[in-house]
Design a protein around this nucleic acid. Structure first.
Lengths: 202, 202
DNA sequence: CATGTTCCGCATCGATCGCTACAGAAGGGT
DNA sequence: ACCCTTCTGTAGCGATCGATGCGGAACATG
């Protein structure tokens, strides 16, 4: 079997799928899953509905792929933050990344993982559940990182990693919501610094 | 002029407008402004679209009135919290009220003021702006309350009421988002207690 | 150039969106 | 009883929703 070579015969697609997905990401980010209509999406992507369906499947699949792109792009600070050597370093990096990503001078404010589909009607429950899972995953990884910090003696042994992760997650979401409301970057970073001055909040 | 007496002539309406508004509130709370269709709303309200428009105006007005009802009902803890004698008491009451309201055993999870219309498409910008104003108002009242606490010596004179209000607001929103994701009441209250143990986070 | 394959513009699908016109039903005032 | 006002059920408005069928255009391969 020497088939399945990376040589698709036929007419090549006339647009950059990566760039189209980036445009879709920005629309979902700014307007949410339900607020972003197919017409708005394809218009921003610069392609027809036919091309969108052929390339990405359907609206929910497009959202799923946009969320993946968001995770590996604007939200990539999260993975790096978890690699910080201390729990304080992790939290500092998470807050700094959250503030920066949710208040970019150009582009949407807030966090796609929060405002993309926080609640929805029945027909969009797929997108909603997708984001619930996304947020749960972020929480769990913070909690596991804190557990490691406790095991390493970086955090006091009586610390509850779960509770502490809830606290950090809450502040990050709170930053995202306020950013979506138009609160500025400096103000949010100052607030995060205030929280960091009392770490850990035993 | 003894006209304009509270005696509307004609056929009286055949439903309880207050109860209908309560039903609409629950739908908006659970599904958001864009996710709640007129059909879903009127079905839950038990009235026809005609009656809804005659009584409440249109969808955006219905949302506005539902938000008012939410403010005076489920969110009434907020006004009472600001009357607490100390800043710590205020924050304690705000967190307790937020946790309780966003995790009611029966009824929607989360906060209408956050998830009702955090981001929207163009056609729903009115609802979005309404909630931005609603959240801004809440933040401002907390800030003013903290300013008073500083003036009274209840909080250290070097405290920034604005920053502290951002911090409290962020945690409240973070509680709301996690509640919307299904996180339980006890876990969120424990997290709030952890934050309260370090007060103020100078 | 001939052939096979893929892509894409156009038109449109049925369903649902928010919203309203109309006419009859149901009450109050006199 | 009458009339007048208001409410409400039905039916449907134009617009938009997400999603497709189809046929020709465009490109790789031989």
């Amino acid at each position: 079997m020497k088939t399945s070579q990376r040589r698709p015969t036929g007419r090549p697609r006339g647009f950059d799928a990566d760039e189209a997905l980036e445009r879709a990401l920005l629309v979902f980010w700014e307007q949410g899953y339900e607020g972003a209509s197919l017409a708005t999406l394809t218009d921003a992507m610069g392609i027809s509905t036919t091309s969108m369906y052929a390339t990405f499947g359907n609206k929910e699949e497009l959202f799923r792929k946009a969320l993946e792109r968001y995770t590996e792009g604007p939200s990539a600070y999260f993975d790096r933050a978890l690699d910080e050597p201390t729990a304080l370093g992790v939290v500092t990096a998470i807050f700094a990344g959250t503030v920066r990503t949710t208040t970019r001078p150009t582009g949407p404010n807030g966090c796609l993982g929060v405002q993309g589909a926080l609640v929805t009607g029945d027909s969009s429950r797929g997108a909603r559940d997708l984001l619930v899972t996304w947020r749960d995953s972020g929480y769990s990884r913070i909690r596991e990182r804190f557990q490691r910090a406790v095991d390493d003696g970086d955090l006091p042994p009586e610390t509850s990693p779960a509770l502490l992760a809830r606290y950090v997650t809450a502040l990050a979401y709170g930053i995202a919501v306020q950013a979506a409301s138009g609160v500025g970057r400096d103000e949010l970073q100052d607030m995060a610094d205030t929280a960091l001055r009392n770490w850990p909040p035993c």
